[in-house]
Design a protein around this nucleic acid. Structure first.
Lengths: 96, 96
DNA sequence: TTTATATATGAACAGATATTCATATAGTTA
DNA sequence: TAACTATATGAATATCTGTTCATATATAAA
């Protein structure tokens, strides 16, 4: 493969950086098959509501998750299959 | 997929964290098809020898690159195909 | 309207991280 | 051995990042 330009390189690093935090990995993990509201996520992964909310904002900004409102809850899910693919590949590599 | 345990989650985050820096992405990029010595890497990606060396140490510690000595040069290459796979997947996602 | 629940967010703090600079180490050549 | 080249590394610094705490916002229930 050819040498990528700087912008592309930075974008790739930014993408991986988002997967490079265990709280965000946990969030992606619980969203792999389900959509969940913030407090369900917080409870499942045992992280404070505030911390989850802060991390969801990062995932949202990077368009790795999508969401909708229902009542006074907000349900989050993975934005697309790419997120799951990257997660699964990382998971495979980590098994060794 | 089931809920991963904390250790696994941390390992995955650590793995992605290593891909989450543009200098390391550049290093992996130039090593995709070749093996190169430190000064060749530094020259190709236009980063100081010291910075490259520091980042190579991180890649080495994580077993993402391997190396051998020849004369007073040290040649680095990607440790296995997984590294390339993860890189390529990130690259694909970044095109959109 | 008051109270309760769910979520977001800003500030502050602590810890992590990447680069630079100076220097050490080691192999090579003269 | 002395000089040169390639690489590694420690210290210092600046920047970034994640959590907590307090609080704001918004919806729902009483």
């Amino acid at each position: 493969m050819e040498l990528l330009d700087d912008d592309k390189t930075i974008d790739m690093a930014e993408l991986f950086k988002i997967f490079g935090d265990s709280t965000r990995i946990k969030i992606i993990n619980v969203l792999l098959d389900n959509e969940l509201c913030v407090c369900e996520i917080a409870s499942k992964i045992k992280v404070s509501q505030s911390a989850v909310s802060h991390q969801l904002r990062i995932l949202k900004t990077a368009k790795l998750v999508k969401y909708y409102k229902k009542g006074n809850c907000i349900y989050y899910s993975l934005a697309d299959d790419h997120v799951k693919k990257i997660f699964m590949l990382g998971s495979e590599h980590t098994n060794e």
